[in-house]
């Protein structure tokens, strides 16, 4: 359980980090932020990077601010920092609730939000949240900066649109309106364990009917996904257990799960119904 040898680099500025990564990426050089997924993979020798570019000392990478309707999350913002202290209102409360499902306290103090996104584990809560909310991913390299939309960021199992020489320098989450209602539900076998299925619902209730619904599912397919057919079905309808049942059943037919176990699809339906019920302020089905 010891990592293979590697060369270690600790840049102090973003420019230095990008230069190092540009030079070392072709030689299997990788970025390390919190390392809470990468270091276990190295200990198991699933990952054997020849170089690590440690961004923990890069000035400014821990920035976390609300600007122009976006919560801007820098690459060194730890899981523990993304809660109600970061942004007030429904988004802050949602982040606080979701954060509690991410591993354990000593992992949350070190692991980073952007690191989780770049790692793209299908069971990652932040990946589900970013997908469902329509986050923007800012990637930078010596070649310049580009913005990747949520629908284009995740490319499959632990695969993203990031190029080897790019650093995810910022996640932008849209600040939710005060009228937004959210529901998150995750099933995992043990506290802090990986999700078997997780769903996030964001909606408004206007004159008794659902408006602007967003529904996302994680840990079932090889990447998190918005369930747009179910969203279309929900819009304009009054919330009810029967409606949420119908939405979950609709979502199920389009799923391509990572394993063939029907249990996984049953779980998917259950977490979708529970997330929707929580968002609508109804008791858990």
């Amino acid at each position: 359980m010891k990592p293979a040898p590697f060369r270690y680099h600790a840049p102090r500025t973003e420019a230095e980090a990008l230069s190092l990564l540009a030079a070392l990426a072709p030689e299997e050089g990788r970025v390390i932020a919190g390392g809470q997924s990468l270091v276990p993979a190295m200990a198991l020798r699933i990952a054997r990077p020849s170089h690590l570019v440690d961004i923990n000392n890069v000035a400014g990478f821990d920035r976390l601010a609300v600007e122009d309707g976006w919560l801007r999350v820098g690459p060194l913002v730890r899981h523990a920092a993304l809660g109600e202290g970061a942004v007030p209102g429904p988004l802050g409360r949602l982040l606080e609730a979701v954060r509690g499902h991410i591993a354990h306290l000593p992992i949350r103090t070190r692991g980073t939000v952007c690191g989780s996104l770049a790692n793209a584990d299908p069971a990652s809560e932040w990946c589900l949240l970013a997908t469902t909310l329509g986050a923007r991913f800012h990637a930078r390299s010596l070649r310049g900066e580009r913005v990747i939309e949520a629908d284009a960021f995740f490319g499959g199992f632990m695969t993203t649109a990031l190029a080897p020489d790019e650093i995810l320098v910022e996640l932008r989450l849209p600040v939710l309106s005060d009228a937004a209602r959210t529901g998150f539900h995750e099933f995992s076998r043990r506290a802090g364990d990986f999700a078997q299925a997780a769903a996030l619902a964001v909606l408004e209730l206007r004159e008794g009917v659902i408006a602007a619904p967003r529904l996302g599912l994680g840990a079932v397919e090889d990447r998190p996904r918005r369930l747009r057919e179910a969203e279309a079905l929900l819009a304009g309808r009054a919330p009810s257990e029967a409606l949420f049942h119908e939405a979950a059943a609709t979502a199920r037919t389009g799923l391509v799960p990572m394993d063939e176990d029907p249990y996984r699809l049953d779980l998917a339906e259950t977490v979708i119904r529970r997330a929707l019920s929580a968002a609508a302020g109804m008791p858990a089905p």
Binding site: M1, G35, Q36, V39, P40, A43, L44, H104, L105, P106, I107, T109, R110
Partner: peptide, 20 residues
């Protein structure tokens, strides 16, 4: 590999896994 917590220490006052 970060699962058991036996190696937990404090770094700048925060609990961390010393194996990670």
């Amino acid at each position: 590999h970060g699962v058991c917590g036996a190696c937990t220490v404090l770094m700048d006052g925060q609990p961390v896994r010393a194996c990670l």
